[in-house]
Nucleic acid binder design. Structure first.
Length: 272
DNA sequence: TAGGCCATCTGGTCCT
DNA sequence: AGGACCAGATGGCCTA
C-alpha cells in the first residue's frame, strides 16, 4: 500500500508550525524534550493505530498534580487583555497529552483518507478506462463517474443506445484533455472525431444538435478552475493517444448494453 | 522550472 | 471528551 510513503513522510515531516501551538510553547525546554521523545512517539504510532490507550493513561496519571493550575494571571498591564477562555499553561505533561492526541488524530485522519482513497480506487475500476498504469486523478475520476452515470441513465431514460461518438462525448464533458485522450484511447477512437474544432465556452459537442444525448443537465461548469486543461476541449492540443483495449469496466457495458461497437471499427477507420 | 497531483498535518466545527 | 469531517497549509514527486 502507501505504507512506505506514509512512513517516509512521517519520518521526514516535522510537526508543522501552527500559530497557536508555537505561540503557546515557544520552543520551550519542554518542547525540546518532546522532540527527543518524537522517536518514541513515532514508534508509538503503530500502537496507536491499534487503539493503544496505555500511553495516554499513563500520561493522565502523570498530569494529575498539575491539572488544576488554570491560572495564567496576566499580571502585566501593558498587554491588552485577551478575550475568550484563558489558555491553560502548557505543562510538560499537558504538552505530551496534546501531542498524543494529535498523533492519534493524525492516524485517524490518515486512515480516513486511505478509506476515501480506497473508495475512489474502487470507483476507478467501475468507471470506463480503468488502467493500473495510467491512473485517472481523483477529480477526473469523479467527473468521469458523474458523466458515466448520467450517460447510462440517459440510455435508460430514452431506451435508445447512442452512437459511440455521442457516448464518448457525454463521457468526456468537462474532462481535461489528457483524460479525454485516455477515454478516446480506451474506445480506440480518435479524439478529433468528437472534439470541437475551436475552443468555446460551451463546446459544440455539448449542444444537443450535435449529439444524440440531450444537453447535460448537470454538466460541469468549470467555474474559474486554476488549471487551463480543466473543462476545456481545445482541439488544438496535440493528441497522444495510445490505443489499448477497453477498460475492464467498459467491456461488459458494450457487450451487453451497447452492441453498437460492431460499427466502431468502421468509424475508426473512417477517421483515419 | 512551473504547475498539477497527492499525502499528510493541523486546527476548527459539529456530533454523540 | 473524543471522534468524524472538513478545509487550509505544506512539502514531495512527477511531467511537460
Amino acid at each position: 500500500m502507501t505504507k512506505s510513503y506514509t512512513e517516509q513522510t512521517m519520518m521526514s515531516s516535522e510537526p508543522q508550525d501552527s500559530a497557536t501551538w508555537t505561540d503557546e510553547c515557544q520552543r520551550s525546554q519542554d518542547e525540546q524534550d518532546m522532540e527527543k521523545n518524537n522517536g518514541a512517539l513515532e514508534s508509538m504510532h503503530g500502537a496507536l493505530e491499534d487503539d493503544d490507550e496505555d500511553g495516554l493513561n499513563r500520561l493522565d496519571e502523570d498530569d494529575d498534580e498539575e491539572e488544576e493550575e488554570e491560572e495564567e494571571e496576566e499580571g502585566d498591564d501593558q498587554k491588552p487583555k485577551r478575550r475568550g477562555p484563558k489558555k491553560k499553561k502548557m505543562t510538560k505533561a499537558r504538552m505530551q497529552r496534546f501531542k498524543m492526541r494529535r498523533h492519534k488524530a493524525n492516524a485517524r485522519e490518515r486512515n480516513r483518507m486511505h478509506g476515501l482513497n480506497d473508495a475512489l480506487e474502487s470507483l476507478r475500476k467501475v468507471v470506463p478506462c480503468y488502467s493500473k498504469t495510467q491512473k485517472l486523478s481523483k477529480i477526473e475520476t469523479l467527473r468521469l463517474a458523474k458523466n458515466y452515470i448520467w450517460a447510462l441513465s440517459e440510455i435508460l431514460r430514452s431506451g435508445k443506445s447512442p452512437d459511440v461518438i455521442s457516448f464518448v462525448q457525454a463521457l468526456c464533458r468537462g474532462l481535461s484533455q489528457p483524460t479525454t485522450n485516455l477515454v478516446a484511447g480506451c474506445l480506440q477512437l480518435n479524439p478529433r472525431t468528437f472534439l470541437p474544432e475551436q475552443t468555446q465556452e460551451i463546446p459544440s459537442h455539448m449542444q444537443p444538435a450535435s449529439a444524440s444525448f440531450a444537453a447535460h443537465p448537470y454538466s460541469y461548469q468549470t467555474p474559474g478552475l486554476p488549471s487551463p486543461p480543466y473543462g476545456t476541449m481545445d482541439s488544438s492540443h496535440v493528441f497522444h493517444v495510445k490505443p489499448h483495449s477497453y477498460g475492464s469496466a467498459l467491456e461488459p457495458f458494450f457487450e451487453t448494453a451497447l452492441p453498437l461497437l460492431s460499427a466502431r471499427h468502421d468509424m475508426v477507420s473512417s477517421c483515419h
